[in-house]
């Protein structure tokens, strides 16, 4: 474990220095395996947050799930210098790189931003100009992961826009979306993008289901839509 960064009060980023770093496609994940002294093991998957242009290390961004077995271990126990057993990179369908083109619609809920961030970082470091729109649902502005970096990316004026929606606490004077993702919201942002070449949706199950159905209803071919479901319970 090379470094640990606090992203929000429930989310931290863990930078792993890998003995054998391997190229990957943005959207892929690593499997983490924890082993107790009695041999008991627990495995979970965590998406790679860094782009493939960042070599030798990978960042895993983990939201702590109350009562969980693995995510609170990362948050409360893991320290810089600890060994963590990982396997990867793994995944295929939920990946995007510049060669796949766009326009690209990314829809993330909570920690579902992580694999999308890898895509955005890749897009930025390769100076890729594929028109890209991120619709990002968070409980409140304080829960937005990678907030400053997203602001900087969208300010760069290279065809990337971010649209936030807040579901619990709405800041004073906010005139953006302030509700859970729904059909109207999806059709509004997809209209803004015009044609949708590829759509990637990631987050809790219910969130992904709603967003994917909305895109299908808006006439986007299923083959263009990729989903990744992080957890059985919706947290937004």
């Amino acid at each position: 474990m090379e470094s640990i960064t606090v992203e929000t009060y429930r989310v931290k980023t863990f930078r792993l220095l890998l003995p054998l770093w391997q190229p990957f496609r943005p959207g892929m994940h690593y499997d983490v395996r924890l082993t107790a002294p009695d041999g008991y093991q627990a495995q979970r998957s965590y998406s790679i947050a860094t782009g493939p242009e960042t070599r030798n290390v990978v960042d895993l961004t983990v939201e702590t799930i109350e009562g969980g077995e693995v995510s609170p271990y990362f948050h409360d126990i893991v320290e810089v210098g600890d060994q963590v057993e990982v396997r990867g990179p793994i995944g295929g369908p939920f990946t995007w790189d510049g060669s796949m083109g766009g326009p690209l619609l990314l829809i993330g809920g909570g920690s579902g931003i992580v694999p999308l961030m890898s895509m955005l970082r890749h897009r930025n470091s390769t100076a890729c100009l594929v028109p890209t729109l991120l619709l990002y649902s968070s409980r409140s502005p304080g829960n937005v992961i990678y907030s400053d970096e997203l602001d900087a990316l969208s300010a760069a004026g290279n065809g990337f826009e971010v649209e936030h929606t807040f579901t619990r606490k709405i800041p004073d004077g906010w005139n953006g979306f302030a509700r859970r993702v729904d059909v109207e919201m999806i059709s509004e942002v997809s209209d803004r993008l015009g044609i949708i070449g590829r759509a990637f949706i990631c987050g809790p199950e219910g969130f992904v289901e709603t967003a994917a159905n909305a895109l299908v209803n808006a006439g986007i071919a299923s083959e263009r839509i990729r989903t990744e479901r992080f957890g059985p319970i919706g947290t937004r």
Binding site: A36, Y73, I77, Q83, E85
Partner: peptide, 17 residues
Amino acid sequence: MEGNVAVLSRGFSGFRR
């Protein structure tokens, strides 16, 4: 995962919810 030699996870007991 690197053969089958497990790396012990410091401070992990696992509570098998």
